[in-house]
Nucleic acid binder design. Sequence first.
DNA 1: AATGAATGAGCGTTCATTCAT
DNA 2: CATGAATGAACGCTCATTCAT
Lengths: 222, 222, 222, 222
Amino acid sequence: MTAIAERPARSRARNRRVAGADPDKRHQILEGAHVVFTARGFDASSMADIAAAANVSKGTLYVYFEDKEHLFIALIEREREKQKQGIYEALADIPDLAQALSRFGERLVRLITGGFALSAQRIVLGVAERMPELGREFYERGPMQGTRRLAAFLQRRVELGELAIEDPALAAAQFIDLCQSTLTRPRLFNAVPMPPEDEEIARVVASAVTMFLAQYGVKKPG
Amino acid sequence: MTAIAERPARSRARNRRVAGADPDKRHQILEGAHVVFTARGFDASSMADIAAAANVSKGTLYVYFEDKEHLFIALIEREREKQKQGIYEALADIPDLAQALSRFGERLVRLITGGFALSAQRIVLGVAERMPELGREFYERGPMQGTRRLAAFLQRRVELGELAIEDPALAAAQFIDLCQSTLTRPRLFNAVPMPPEDEEIARVVASAVTMFLAQYGVKKPG
Amino acid sequence: MTAIAERPARSRARNRRVAGADPDKRHQILEGAHVVFTARGFDASSMADIAAAANVSKGTLYVYFEDKEHLFIALIEREREKQKQGIYEALADIPDLAQALSRFGERLVRLITGGFALSAQRIVLGVAERMPELGREFYERGPMQGTRRLAAFLQRRVELGELAIEDPALAAAQFIDLCQSTLTRPRLFNAVPMPPEDEEIARVVASAVTMFLAQYGVKKPG
Amino acid sequence: MTAIAERPARSRARNRRVAGADPDKRHQILEGAHVVFTARGFDASSMADIAAAANVSKGTLYVYFEDKEHLFIALIEREREKQKQGIYEALADIPDLAQALSRFGERLVRLITGGFALSAQRIVLGVAERMPELGREFYERGPMQGTRRLAAFLQRRVELGELAIEDPALAAAQFIDLCQSTLTRPRLFNAVPMPPEDEEIARVVASAVTMFLAQYGVKKPG
DNA sequence: AATGAATGAGCGTTCATTCAT
DNA sequence: CATGAATGAACGCTCATTCAT
C-alpha cells in the first residue's frame, strides 16, 4: 500500500548503504569518534583519524553513518543517554529539600564539568551557527530537559508548602546557574584544565542552596 | 608634517610585511570577516570567502593579518573594544546599590545576548580544545574581567557596610549568572533566534537583584 | 599464499597512510615524476604537473609519498639502484689492471653523462644549499661511494705490487676525474645536449688510464 | 633608418621602465641579491627578500631589472667579472713550468671552492634544464674560458719544447680536473661546509702537477 | 625615479566521500 | 559487509609582478 510496500524487491536491493547492522561495530566506531572528536573538535577531526581510532576502514564509517555530521550527532546522542542516568534520583529519593537540592546540584556540576560533556558542549556550540538543528536539539534534550525536571520538582515542593515560587522555570534555571558559578565557564573556555575538586563543588553548591532558599524558602513557623 | 611623520608604518616594521597601514582597508577586511565568521564559525569560513565578503583579494588579507587565526583574534579584539564601553559606568555612577546592580545587569545581558558577542563565544568555544591560548585569553579578557570588576565593586560596598559577603569573587559570579538565567544559554545553542526583549531582561535581572540582596544585603537598622 | 602474505602492506604500517601498496601505481608515479623533475628541476615542478604526467590524481601522489621532497628522494634512490648495477664488475672480473680501469672508467662515464644521472645531479645541486642533508646523502651514496670502491680496488693492486700509491683515496678521485675530463662538465651545464659518443669516451678514458699508470704504475722488471 | 631611429620620440617615452640609471642603486640591489641568492638558491629566494636585503622597495627591483631571472643573470655576470682577475697571471708571469702550473692551479681551486663561485655554480646547475641559455653562457664564459686559456698556455710550452701534448684542450681539462680532485665535488654537494685549507690545496695541486708532467713533460737531455 | 599596497594565479597539501574488489 | 586506494575540490598561504601615488 505504501511506496515502500510497492517495491519490496528494492527493500534490500541497491546493494549499498544497507545501514550498518552490526551493533558491535557501531559501538566500536562511536568509541573511536568519541576519542577523536573530544581531542580535536568537529572540524579538526578527520574521518581517517576516526577510522584509525576505531580500528575500522574509512569505508566502513560510511556503512554505519551517512556522513561525518550524522556520525557526530549519533555520538552526542549516545553520550547523553549514558550520562543523564542517576542525576535526577536525588530529587526523587531525598525527602529533605536542602539535601535533595545539594545532592542534585553536586551531581549535575560533576557531570557538566567532567570529561565528555564539556567537549560535547564546545563542539556543538562551535557548529551551532551552521547546524542550528543540532544546537537546538542538544539544548532541548540536555540543559532544557534538566531545567524542566528541576522545575517540576520545585513545583511539587511549592505545592507541599515548602517553597514560594512564582516562576518555577526561572527558579530552576537560577539554581542550576548558581551551582555552576565560577566552575563551568572557565573550564568551557579551556582556561582551567582540571575538573573542580569535590570540595570546591560542595562549597559552591552549598552557597547556591543557601541563596536559593533565602529567596524562595518558606519559613517554618515556630 | 615631516617625511618621517608621513610614514608611520615603518615604526612598527619588524622584518617584512610592514602590515597594512590603511585603516579603511583594515576595517573593510574586518567587516567581511565579521560577516563570514559569524555566519559559519572559524573552520568553515575560508579566507577566500572572507576576501570576497570584504571585497579585497586573498593576498591583501595577508598584508593586513598574519594568518587566519590572527585575523580572527583581531576581530574578537575589535568587537570587545566596541562593546565593553559603558557597561561598568552604572557601577561607578549610580549610588543606590539595587539600582546600580540592575543597571549593570541589564546592560551586561543586553551585550552578551546580542549580536556578535554570542557568535564570538560560540566560535571561541568551538576551537578552545585546539587553541587553548585563545580560549584562555578570551575568557580572561571577557567574562573573567567582568566578574573581577563587579567583585571589586561589591567589595567597596561591603566596606561601606551595605553588603555582607565572604567571597566577593563567588558572589560576583553568582550575580552575573543569575542575570543570565534562561536568557543566554538557549541563545548560545541557537535554540532561540532572537535576542531577549528588554522587558524580559528587566524581569530576570530584577529577580537576580532581589535574590542577591536577600542573601548578601545588610538590613538597615530601624 | 596465506591471508597474511596477501597483505604485506600492513607490515610496514606506521600510524596512518599505510602507503600505496600497488607497485604498478608507484612505478607509474615515479615515471611521471622522472619526466617532470628532469624537465624542470625540483622547485619548478609542481605536484599537479607530476600528477598529470603520471596520469593519477594529485591526492594519489600523497597516498604513495609523504610529500614532494620524499617523492623526489624516492625517485633518486630508484634511479641509483637501476644504474649502479654492473659498474663495479669490471674491477672484480678483469685481471689485467689497465683493462679493468678502462672498462670501469668507460662504464662510469657512460652512466654519469647519460640520461637521468645528469638531471639528478643538477636538481640535487640546485637545492643543496637549502637541503644540505639531501646533498650530503646524494654525494655520499653516489660519487663518494664510487671513489671508495675504486680506492679499495687500487689498494688491493698496491698490495699485489702492481701500483705504488701513497694516498689511494686521492688517486681514485684523480682517476675518476680524469675519465670525465671534457665530458661531464659541459653536459652538466647543459651546454652540450647529447651524451658523448662511445669513441669519445674511449679516447678520454684511454688517456686517463695512460696518465694514471704513468704516475702510479710499477714498472715491471725487464 | 632602423626601426629605433624612426621613433626617436619614443626612445625615452612610455614613461616606464626607463632602465635604472643610478649605478649606486643598481649596485645596492646586486649586493642584496648576492646575499639572498647565495643563501637560498634561485627559486627559494623571493623578490621581497631581495628588496629587503638591498634596502629598496620591491618596485624598484623592476626599475633596474626586467624580472627575477634577469636580475640573477646580471648578478652572475658581475661576479664573474670580479673574480676572474688574477687567475691567469701566474701563467704569464712565472717562467718555470711546474711553478706556473702550481700557482695557477692553487689560485683556480681557491677561487672555485670559495664563497660565491660554489653557490653560483649550484644555482646555475639547478636551473640549467629550464634555462639552457644561462647554463651554456655560464659554462662558456667560466669553466670553458679557463680551460681554453690554459690550453693556449700549454700550446706555447709545447712549441718551446717543454711539453709533448697531442690534444692541448684535453690536457688542459685534465689538469684542471686533477687540481680539484677530492676538493670541489663534496663542497658542491654541500657535504663539506668549509673551504679547503691552503695546505690541502697545495698537496692536491702538487700531485696534479707531478702527474701532469709525468705524462706530458719532456725530459731534458742530460 | 621610487614606493609598497594590491593582485590573483598558483603552490603543496588535506580530506570527505566513492567504489571496485 | 568490509576494505582502502583513488579522487578532486577546496584549503591556507606565497609571491612575482603591476600600478596609483
